[in-house]
Design a protein around this nucleic acid. Structure first.
Lengths: 130, 130
DNA sequence: GATTACGTTTACGTAAACGTAAAGCTCAAC
DNA sequence: GTTGAGCTTTACGTTTACGTAAACGTAATC
């Protein structure tokens, strides 16, 4: 017995993820999400909700919506033939490198922020014990 | 004896970091770097070069140039008075949280890419051993 | 049956981050 | 002395990612 699938309205998702209705419609225009239509209104299924989350995560990582499209589309790619598969594997390797570069960037930035923080604390202490 | 400080032309830095001259000039317009002027030409000092690298790193992390400005300006903030220092510490805490969120995003994405990769490899093997 | 809440499409507007001419300066080389 | 390499400024153009306004549909509520 699979539980009856939950659905969401556009306002539901917008408020849950704190984005505008316009943003969600924009993502639909770009084909990033494909909600069902019930009459004229959009009905969002779990798949759409997951995709929206993936898009927003991609945005936080500084990817363009165009790049995000290729990334999320990798997630539910059909098995396909050999060339397709090798292309996908290539894409994955590429994205992995980008992400690992970003991770290094983050580590470095965090380390530097820690330094600045120390200096601040020292300056603050110097002011207090004067 | 401090070694005579090295300097760079705009083309030097542009080709080293693989950005356009326009981009560098744009960053100067925004006050992100402040090269010396020798006659009418720009002369870049180590400080400018470091700043450029910081800006580009910030960009890879998906920060806007505006946010990057506040970040890199924290790095060489003058000691200042108590309020200033506490404000800076607050900013640091804020940026740290953002960066840690991004790091989590990266870990998750890498994990998912690994899954997709596995599926691809399996499909590829299935094709090969048929 | 008018209001209110919630949704829709169409379409122009906008901010950010540069791209891209156009026009000119400067200095060394031929 | 003019040609070319490298630099400059000014200013309009472009792309991305939505914002925003206008005008309208639908369905429950008062």
């Amino acid at each position: 017995m699979t539980a009856t699938e939950q659905t969401w309205s556009i306002t539901d998702l917008a408020s849950e993820y704190d984005v505008s209705l316009r943003t969600i419609r924009h993502y639909e225009d770009l084909g990033l999400i494909t909600p069902e239509r019930r009459g004229t209104s959009r009905v969002f299924h779990p798949r759409d909700r997951v995709r929206l989350a993936l898009v927003l995560r991609g945005k936080r990582l500084g990817f363009s919506l165009d790049e995000i499209a290729t990334i999320v589309n990798m997630y539910d790619a059909e098995p396909g033939e050999g060339g397709q598969l090798r292309y996908l594997l290539d894409q994955i390797a590429h994205r992995r490198e980008e992400l690992e570069q970003r991770r290094r960037d983050i580590e470095e930035t965090l380390a530097e922020l820690a330094e600045v923080e120390q200096r601040c604390q020292q300056d603050l202490n110097a002011l207090a014990t004067r």
